[in-house]
């Protein structure tokens, strides 16, 4: 069985009174696409930002390549080889593809930018991803289509020998053909041995490209399942109710019971024992909360964009 390259255990994150992530376990595996799904406010963005070091986690463990690591700022994540491709892409329209791919990490010989070397490496990276939709790397990004921009943003993320690439809604603004382009690229990233985390609301995208699916429900990890073991209906159930048949959260965790005081659990003190029972590939039963008081999520739908 593949060991996860990235593994979060019992992670908690609060913004003031809003307890956004509750004892979340999350894994990403090399060579696989892990889809992260969940409704608005389920905590997808917060989880990604915790992985990327934009929000440090409050408690829980963060392991990379089997070693516990501390990720407190974006630089820590990049140093580990974790790259995030944001939904709004963060490209400079007035610069060309090479300049965008190397932005902030330009190669120089002496004082002068080493344009030729950068262009060569950009071409190699694009060729390595079998990108054929970009005719010239000297094109300005302003002249590219949405799919091509996404390609550039993804290529930039993999240029640095990254090991984990997180894609936030990469197909949200794209048409059918371009969505296919980008999903093909996502597949190739995984085939090249990277761990890809794909955040998407589009179940067709998820089902067509993911190897595993993690579903968040109101800040809790409802389930991590193999793609082969689930279908469209059951994912939607997991997303909307937190459970589906023998999968998902126990009824008392989905907010159906009425314990109003939602105290943050001291996740750090929790031995990883029970949580580790969630093994990739296993059909996951109701997550049994180890000891401690059963908590209820806050009734209000905490938004992902809680101020830092």
């Amino acid at each position: 069985m593949t060991e996860p390259i990235l593994s979060l255990r019992q992670v908690n994150k609060s913004f003031g009174p809003a307890h956004v992530l509750k004892d979340v376990d999350f894994n990403a595996y090399p060579g696989e696409v892990m889809a992260l799904v969940g409704d608005n406010g389920a905590g997808k963005s917060t989880l990604t930002k915790c992985i990327g070091g934009i929000h440090p986690i409050d408690s829980g463990s963060y392991e990379f390549d089997g070693r516990p690591v501390r990720v407190h700022e974006p630089r820590d994540a990049s140093a580990l080889g974790i790259e995030i491709v944001y939904q709004d892409l963060a490209l400079c329209d007035n610069l060309d593809i090479v300049q965008n791919m190397f932005l902030g990490r330009e190669e120089r010989s002496g004082m002068v930018l080493d344009r030729a070397s950068m262009e060569e490496r950009a071409l190699q990276t694009l060729a390595g991803l079998s990108v054929r939709t970009v005719t010239s790397v000297r094109q300005r990004v302003a002249s590219l289509s949405g799919g091509q921009r996404q390609t550039v943003a993804i290529a930039r993320a993999v240029l640095w020998n990254s090991k984990v690439v997180i894609l936030d809604e990469p197909t949200a603004a794209l048409g059918v053909a371009q969505t296919k382009q980008v999903l093909d690229l996502v597949r190739r990233l995984a085939d090249a041995g990277l761990a890809v985390i794909l955040i998407s609301h589009n179940m067709n995208d998820v089902l067509s490209v993911a190897d595993r699916i993690s579903a968040l429900y109101l800040g809790r990890m409802a389930a991590e399942v193999r793609r082969a073991d689930i279908d469209h209906t059951r994912i939607v159930e997991l997303i909307t109710t937190g459970r589906s048949g023998d999968l998902g959260l126990a009824p008392e965790q989905t907010g159906e019971t009425g314990d109003p005081d939602a105290t943050p659990a001291a996740g750090g003190s929790d031995p990883a024992g029970e949580a580790d029972a969630i093994r990739p590939g296993d059909a996951i039963g109701p997550v049994v909360e180890p000891a401690g008081p059963a908590e209820t999520p806050t009734a209000t739908d905490t938004d992902d964009e809680v101020p830092a």
């Binding site: 060729a127 079998s130 005719t135 053909a177 371009q178 296919k180 093909d184």
Partner: peptide, 18 residues
Amino acid sequence: SVTPEAPQLDGPAEKPAV
């Protein structure tokens, strides 16, 4: 905008266009 770029999509790459 949805610009169809279908012709370039399918099949494995024989050579990079770039």
